[in-house]
Amino acid sequence: MNPNVQDPEWKKGSAELLVLSLLEDQPRHGYDISKLIQMRSGGALRFHVTSLYPLLHRLEKEGLIDGRWVEKADQRRRRYYHLTAPGRKVLRSKQQGWRDFVTAISRITGIEHA
């Protein structure tokens, strides 16, 4: 784990943004989402099954994503999630909010955005 990404509060606050972002391009299932987060963060971020699925269900309940069972030949059926229209709006808002937040922090701490 990257020693710089230690604060669990950061992870908690950005979880929704991560999930919604990953569903922006295409529908995905839960394992897919968790692997992508791990890979794209270089192993710094990891969501266990016990925290990922409650989050997915909550987002689904709030109407930001929609889950559907898909059965493919020779495969167990999987639940794929895709972004809904309200979800897209929330994603935009969160992305903007995150950019503003990072800018503000950078200004105070003198950390430059890579």
């Binding site: 266990h48 099954v49 016990t50 925290s51 699925y53 409650p54 989050l55 269900h57 909550r58 309940k61």
Partner: peptide, 14 residues
Amino acid sequence: LDNLYPLRAGLERN
């Protein structure tokens, strides 16, 4: 599946 508490807490919240 070691720590089920977050799953349970999440289900409770939902």
